[in-house]
């Protein structure tokens, strides 16, 4: 049997708009992944602890409040602090193009902005499959 890819979809910070997060969680489930969804208003610490307990391969962060430049890197840093830098972090939401380079530099490996097709996200996951499966 092929090893299942596990993905945590999480919403850090204070914005309560979870339609996008729920949509992506469902779409990834339909693509055959095991998706853990934790709901809104999660701290970077609780996201990372959840990621560790669930032994996920990816963490997908969704944020619409504008605090992505603080909260996304905070999750990456906390993963690193816990020795889990092998978990791949990606993000989505209302994120200006001008912030994407900064986020990538901070270890957010992909950023998906509104209008991205779900197949782009799946392509990203599949491109990293070998890497996460062999970790």
């Amino acid at each position: 049997m092929e090893r299942k890819i596990r993905i945590l979809i999480a919403k850090p910070g204070l914005d309560g708009h979870d339609r996008g997060a729920k949509y992506i969680a469902r779409a990834l489930k339909d693509a055959g992944y095991e998706v853990i969804y934790t709901g809104i208003r999660q701290s970077p610490e609780s996201i990372v602890r959840t990621a560790l307990q669930e032994d996920v391969d990816f963490v997908g962060l969704s944020l619409l409040s504008g605090a992505h430049n603080e909260l996304f890197p905070a999750v990456v840093d906390e993963l690193q602090r816990q020795g889990a830098q092998d978990v791949v972090v990606f993000g989505g939401g209302v994120i200006p193009d001008s912030d994407i380079a900064y986020l990538r530099d901070k270890g957010v490996e992909a950023v998906f902005t509104p209008g991205t097709s779900i197949s782009a996200v799946i392509d990203f996951i599949e491109a990293n499959r070998e890497r996460v499966v062999s970790r």
Partner: peptide
């Protein structure tokens, strides 16, 4: 899902208040 093999694991959504408690471990 019997069709795709995917799954949406949402039970811990209701238990996240315990996410940071070192005496609680939740696994989906």
């Amino acid at each position: 899902s019997p069709f795709t093999g995917g799954a949406l694991l949402g039970d811990r959504l209701r238990m996240q208040s315990h996410a940071l408690d070192p005496g609680v471990y939740i696994r989906s």
